[in-house]
Every structure is written in structure tokens, then in C-alpha cells.
Amino acid sequence: MTSFLHPTTDGSVFGSVHLGYVVVQSNRLSDWRRFGADAIGLHVDELDSSTLRFRLDDRSCRFLIRRGPAEDVIALGWQVDDHETFDRIVARVTEREVPIIEGTPEEAALRGVERLWRFAGPKGIAQEIFTNAVTTPEPLRMQSSGWVTGEAGLGHVAMLSREPESVRGYFQTVFDSRLSDYIDENISGLKMKIRFLRVNERHHSIAIANIRGVKIDPIRTSVQHINIQSGTLDDMLDSYQRVTDLGFRMQWSVGQHTNDRELSYYCVTPSGFELEVGWNPIVIGPELESTWEPSTYQGISSWGHSTVGETVLNKFAQFRQALRTVGTPEIAVPELTGGVSR
């Protein structure tokens, strides 16, 4: 545990929640295997013809890829530090009459946890909570020398939402997330606002973007990207080169973000959402936490992060997807939004 305040002293679960794993449904398992192991440099375990798992550390599972048609992230797994924290989260969900169910033993085993409970989340992404992860002494077989997880969790998830205040309210209600900062950015003539939320010492575990002035979503997948953090700059740059050499699509070149100062690049996964591989972001430890005030940054990057291989066809596909969302309500969990605004 960190030295953040915990439920026994302040009633908050902040600092006791960590992104533990990501569940993806895809029919492109052979591409995912090549992408994860050969390009990004993760440890891969092929459990059967329908199941892949990626490891980054001693956990038996950090990414679970299961055969299915969604081509999307379908669940996020959050580890909570203790049973008191767990009970507090469960109470928040059930008191607002949102169903919460226990996962089957098979589901828990596949995710590398002892037990898990599941409830509805924004954009149709199931939220799963657990206390005990399964570790393994089996040595990692991967091209990377290591990844940063620990107290900061696996990384972060970013999504584009037509109802950003509701999504922010959801994570504040359930996990006591705190606002780290905002970014205002113009992309292809559209004004975008991004909110960055933290639930522990990682600068953000959730990022929520919206297009200002118009409720459209040009992204097919429920998440825009998932982030993982390289242990060294060389590891990050080596994986960039492998992604390029192996022919996987690079979306944004290496650059540095304005707010968390992370160096990173973005590539496109076999399922269509992006993976950000980063290095050395700001850590908001207890000392910084006590004085942190949210700021608004102009622009996502201080340098780099240039688009790579963007085509007219890509733009047309995004425009067509945006039109599909007009008039269609975004999947939400209004009982858990908490009435947060801005």
C-alpha cells in the first residue's frame, strides 16, 4: 500500500485501486500474438486456440484476448487493496441499485485472479473488481527488459465520450477518482477537451475526451487507446522500430505529452483501437498529491506525436462512424454518475 489516505481514515478508496488487466474480444488471435510478442515485446501464453494472455510482470495475466466478434475491449479489471475497500465499492454500486454479479471460477482463472465481481460501466465496458491476483514464478520470455506496473497499476485507458461529465462522475462515484488536469486540442478542425483522472499515484488511469459543441463519436471501438509503460527509453524506442518493421500501423510518432510529460508513441492494435507505449510520466506521489491543483494545457503534445499514414479513406471511415452515432444514445450507467459536471 502507498501512504495515501485509506478507507479506515477518510472514507475514500483513492489510492487503493489499480488497473489490473484488460479483456479484449477478437477473432484475430494470430495477429494479436504477433503484435503482442514480436512487435510490442510482451510475454505471450497461448492457453488454447481461442485464448491468449499477455504478461508484463509476475502476474499471470495482464491482457486477456479471447476469440469473439467484438474487436474491442469488453472489460477492465481493477484490483483493490483490501476487503474493506472492496466492500465499500460494492456498497456504492448496490446501494444505487446497479446489479453486481460474481464471475465464474473459469472467468477468474482466465483473468489470473482468485475471484472477481462485475458490474456495468460506461460505453458498455464491464468493470470488474478483485482483491487477489495470481502470480507465477515462470520467467518472462519477452523482448522488453521490463514494464512499470506496481502501485500505479497496468497503465491507463482512454475513451472518447459524447457524455464526458457522466463518465467522469461514474469513476468519481465508484473509485473516488481525482481530476489531474485538462487538455484543450484542435484535431482536424474539431475542438476537443480531454479530462485526466487518477485513482492512485499514476498521473491518470482514465482519460475522457469529447468533441466540444457536437455530440459525435468518430471511433468505432469503446476505447480510443490503452497505455502501458516501458521500463526504459531504449525498450520504448526498440518496440517502435519493431512495430514499424513488422508492418503494423503506426498512428502517432514518438512525442512528449504536455501534461504528464510522458514520451510515447501510438500504434493500432489488430482490433482497431490504439496501444500507447510510453516512458517516464510524472508520478503524483503522496508529497505531490497534497498540493496538486488541476491545470488546463493547450495541446496534447509539446513535440512530436505527428500523424503517420493518415489517408482520405481513414477520414471517411471516421466521418461515417460519427454519423452513425447521431441520435443513438451512448451506453451509460446514470445511477453511478453522481451528478458531476464540467
Rank of each mutant, 00 (worst) to 15 (best):
N132T: 06
S188M: 11
F63P: 00
T325V: 00
R111Y: 04
T269L: 03
D176F: 01
V167S: 05
T311V: 14
V223S: 11
Y182R: 15
V98P: 05
P99M: 06
Q25A: 07
L190D: 01
Q298T: 07
V90D: 07
S144A: 15
S180L: 05
Q143G: 12
T221F: 08
V214P: 05
R141G: 06
M1I: 11
V333P: 03
H156K: 11
I216Q: 13
N186I: 14
L237T: 10
V23K: 08
L76W: 00
R261P: 04
P139L: 14
G285R: 02
D217N: 15
L246S: 04
L47T: 07
I65W: 06
D238F: 05
Y170S: 11
T131L: 14
R220P: 02
A207M: 13
K123V: 03
W117V: 04
G11Q: 12
E262T: 15
S3E: 15
Y170N: 13
F130N: 01
E330C: 09
I216V: 15
T173D: 08
T2A: 09
R202Y: 09
Q251T: 00
R195H: 08
Y240E: 03
K193R: 14
T328V: 05
A91E: 11
K123H: 15
I183S: 10
D58Q: 01
W252D: 02
R168Q: 14
I89S: 08
T135Y: 06
L160A: 08
D82P: 12
G150D: 14
F14M: 11
E276R: 13
P122T: 04
E71M: 10
T131Y: 05
W117K: 11
E138C: 03
D58N: 00
R141S: 14
Q251V: 01
Q224K: 10
M192A: 06
V23G: 04
E289D: 15
P334C: 00
H6G: 13
R178A: 13
T104E: 11
F171K: 13
G124L: 02
G338Q: 01
T232F: 00
S49H: 08
P281M: 12
P270C: 01
E128N: 07
T173N: 15
V326F: 03
N314W: 15
V333E: 00
T173L: 14
Y297H: 12
Q224V: 09
G327M: 04
L336S: 00
R33N: 06
L47E: 05
H156Q: 15
I284M: 03
S144M: 04
D238V: 06
I129L: 10
L140F: 06
V24A: 05
G103F: 01
R28N: 12
I40N: 00
E107Y: 03
Q251K: 07
T258H: 10
R62Y: 03
S49I: 04
R96A: 07
R242A: 02
V199E: 06
I194L: 13
R220G: 04
S161R: 09
G36Q: 08
Y21T: 02
